[in-house]
């Protein structure tokens, strides 16, 4: 079950300057009852996005037609809370391919990468610049180049390098997943079990 290959992504973005967006906001627990991976995008940010009667809340950014694109730009400490991978599934299923923030929770980052969603961590200053550029012009384009590990604000040409683990980077560039890798190490694992009496 390979993941989708990622290389260069050029897109407008959806700004969500809120800080500490936790996994309960990304996908509330009551929507975790599915037994498949699909369809979570519908309930992404459910309680911020919809009223009780399921009518959209006009003030929420996903309901604002001015903002679209494959990149979610969020305030610091994004994805804290639960290990629920459903949060990454919901963001990916909704159509985002990358999330940009100045800080990510660990488990969220790992879950995102395992599903082909690229977390791009940038400096608080650059994040601020992106938010103001998008506020001025909602169709502001960002370009993420995974090979070069850069993210560029195309309107000004300003860019920053971002970190990614080299192993994870090659997985994303090639569309491999971790399970393929681990299965290829099966013999080594069995030898370890034998040697350690597991």
């Amino acid at each position: 079950m390979a993941i989708e290959k990622f290389n260069i992504l050029t897109s407008a973005c959806v700004p969500l300057p809120t800080e500490n967006v936790d996994t309960d906001q990304i996908i509330p627990a009551r929507f975790l009852k599915a037994t498949t991976r699909d369809g979570f995008g519908e309930n992404l940010f459910r309680d911020w996005r919809y009223n009780k009667d399921n009518t959209p809340k006009p003030g929420f950014v996903l309901n604002n037609p001015l903002y679209k694109g494959d990149i979610l730009v969020a305030g610091k400490n994004f994805g804290s809370g639960s290990s629920r991978e459903h949060a990454a599934w919901a963001i990916y299923d909704y159509g985002f391919k990358a999330v940009v923030s100045s800080f990510f929770a660990d488990i969220f980052k790992a879950n995102a990468l395992n599903n082909g969603l690229l977390p791009v961590q940038i400096s608080p200053g650059f994040l601020k610049q992106i938010f103001s550029a998008v506020e001025e012009n909602p169709s502001t384009q960002l370009q993420i180049n995974l090979e070069k590990q850069t993210i560029t604000l195309l309107s000004t040409g300003k860019y920053e390098k971002f970190e990614i683990n080299p192993y994870k980077k090659s997985c994303l560039l090639n569309g491999y997943d971790d399970i393929d890798y681990l299965l290829s190490r099966k013999e080594k694992i069995m030898a370890f079990e034998k040697q350690n009496g597991k």
């Binding site: 991976r37 639960s82 290990s83 629920r84 991978e85 459903h86 990454a88 488990i107 790992a110 879950n111 395992n114 599903n115 683990n165 192993y167 997943d177 971790d178 399970i179 890798y181 681990l182 299965l183 190490r185 099966k186 694992i189 079990e193 597991k198």
Partner: peptide, 19 residues
């Protein structure tokens, strides 16, 4: 704690990939 992809890793190989 691990995510569901990692649950699948452990099912398949009794290992996880972790930094």
């Amino acid at each position: 704690g691990i995510g569901t992809s990692e649950v699948e890793m452990v099912f398949a190989t009794q290992c996880v990939l972790q930094p």
